[in-house]
């Protein structure tokens, strides 16, 4: 080949691809990537932190929770807004139950006489372990992470 001659593009390998289409495809790809980048980072930005990873918070000592009863405690860590949690001491173990009914999330009340949780909105009833017994609630009460460290009782985020 002579010096200075322009080499012809290899059109045999990519018959459709000339410089113009190559640039068009490149620019379209770049534009799409930027768009996906915005969309993806928006989703990641708005996605809530994992409930399990929520900070553990001290809600009392072991002695505060008498056997076979439920005690309402408050959890603040995730946002500063108090969240109601029932600590239940039953059958020798401690449970942390979210105090929202699983039907439409009205606040449930503990009835010490019945040893049951009652929802004032549509009459759902849960036993001391949070199992749904009656009413429209479709599942047991949500549980939250609970750890005992020495004498201290710590609770964390909701376990779905």
């Amino acid at each position: 080949m002579k010096r200075g001659a322009i080499e012809k593009p290899n059109t045999e390998k990519f018959p459709q691809m000339n410089r113009r289409t190559f640039f068009k495809a490149g620019i379209a790809t770049l534009g799409t990537l930027i768009g996906v980048g915005y969309l993806g980072s928006a989703l990641a930005f708005l996605w809530p932190a994992s409930a399990r990873a929520a900070k553990l918070e001290n809600v009392g000592a072991l002695d505060d929770f008498a056997p076979e009863t439920a005690t309402l405690v408050t959890y603040h860590a995730s946002s500063g807004t108090p969240e109601g949690v029932y600590i239940v001491n039953t059958a020798g173990k401690l449970l942390a139950l979210d105090f929202h009914c699983t039907h439409l999330e009205c606040a449930i009340n503990w009835s010490p006489d019945l040893k049951q949780f009652l929802c004032p909105c549509h009459g759902s009833v849960f036993n001391i372990e949070g199992v749904n017994l009656a009413g429209p609630a479709p599942r047991p009460l949500y549980r939250r992470v609970l750890q005992v460290k020495g004498e201290r009782v710590l609770i964390g985020g909701r376990i779905i």
Partner: peptide, 13 residues
Amino acid sequence: VSLARDGSNVTGL
């Protein structure tokens, strides 16, 4: 639900 609430409950978030 958690996307709308930014967490499992309705809070300041």
